[in-house]
């Protein structure tokens, strides 16, 4: 080895960085484009503004914060080349469990008469933990038995929905304490969503957890040979996704002041769509929380915009489906470009 000492890198003047468009640039443009389109159509069709209506914007964010929590979880799962189809059902199960421990004693037919008037922390913790447990089962199944994540979480999707219905024989759980429902009031869910997004943005970028998540997604064999405990890491990633589904369930129950087994129906698909629209690659190794957040907002703006324009709900779904497919096609195209570069 040559013995010349290299100048300490810190003292080297910052090399001129080539200008790179932030990865979220293109998707942000799409968001702006869609918003402007709705604004123009708004004036043309309804003679009213779409964007400059604070009330509407807040509703968009509020509606999307629940999907957003699921999307943050599934983004991390997809980065590892996995998928989580169970988030919507796990949300429902967690909502039911949380609600059943948040009932007031005024209600004669409480699910657990001896567990009424509990401090709000009890239902919140139980709801979140139930979600975490479901995620743990997903992760353990995938890591230990090597079954495809699609199958494992499909099983959990059906099972969790069944448990949510079985729990009260399909009856909604209502009359919840004010202390609990406070967590669903106002903009609390939005605040929770923003905090969670910030936490996982930092976790993916600056922690070992994040580095290993990307490594596993980029090349699982190489990750294993680099000394990463791939199995344990997968269990952690799926558990986190489960915890976030649980949290979303708690907030949903608190907001609705009841637990219903049909909550969160098909939310997992919106969550996956948001992640994919936001640039998370189903091939793994690529994806960022900022992109997912923008993807969530795009979905919200579309839903709100269609309603604003009075477009039929069925047509909305048709367009939404097309946009999701377009996002994946764009992803394939990006990958091909990367390969030939």
């Amino acid at each position: 080895m040559n013995t010349t000492t290299h100048p300490a890198p810190a003292s080297v003047p910052e090399e001129r960085k080539r200008f790179k468009m932030p990865q979220e640039g293109s998707i942000l443009l799409v968001l702006v484009g869609i918003a402007v389109l709705f604004e123009i159509l708004g004036w043309a069709v309804r003679g009213d503004t779409f964007l400059f209506n604070a009330q509407r914007l807040l509703i968009i964010v509020l509606q999307m914060s629940i999907i957003g929590l699921l999307a943050i979880g599934v983004t991390q799962v997809i980065i590892t080349t996995g998928i989580d189809l169970s988030s919507g059902s796990v949300l429902a199960l967690s909502a039911m469990i949380a609600a059943s421990f948040a009932q007031t004693s005024d209600y004669a037919r409480a699910v657990f008469p001896m567990f009424t008037d509990m401090p709000a922390v009890v239902p919140i913790l139980l709801g979140v933990l139930a979600g975490g447990l479901a995620g743990l089962v997903n992760g353990a199944l995938i890591a230990r038995t090597m079954i495809p994540p699609f199958i494992a979480t499909l099983g959990m999707m059906v099972t969790a929905r069944g448990l949510a219905r079985w729990y009260t024989d399909g009856q909604p759980v209502s009359l919840l304490s004010d202390e609990f429902t406070w967590f669903g009031s106002g903009y609390i869910p939005v605040v929770v969503f923003i905090v969670v997004a910030a936490i996982f943005h930092i976790a993916l970028k600056y922690t070992r957890y994040g580095k290993f998540t990307y490594a596993i997604g980029a090349n699982m064999n190489a990750a294993r040979v680099s000394g990463i405990n791939v199995n344990r890491h997968l269990v952690i990633v799926y558990s986190i996704a489960g915890l976030l589904s649980g949290l979303a369930g708690v907030l949903t129950a608190a907001r609705a002041a009841s637990g219903q087994a049909g909550m969160g129906m098909a939310y997992e698909l919106d969550a996956i769509a948001a992640a994919v629209i936001g640039g998370t690659s189903l091939a793994g190794g690529v994806g960022r929380i900022t992109g997912t957040v923008i993807g969530v907002i795009i979905l919200g703006v579309m839903t709100s915009g269609f309603t604003f324009l009075g477009i039929d709900a069925y047509v909305q779904d048709v367009v939404k489906g097309a946009i999701i497919v377009a996002a994946v096609v764009a992803d394939q195209y990006r990958q091909k470009k990367r390969k030939t570069a």
Partner: peptide, 22 residues
């Protein structure tokens, strides 16, 4: 390709991965 590189990741991420385990 199969067991070495994380092809989509940066040079830096490829270099640091093993040392980060401990």
């Amino acid at each position: 390709k199969e067991t070495g590189c994380f092809l989509q990741l940066s040079v830096l991420q490829n270099m640091e991965m093993a040392v980060l385990t401990d």
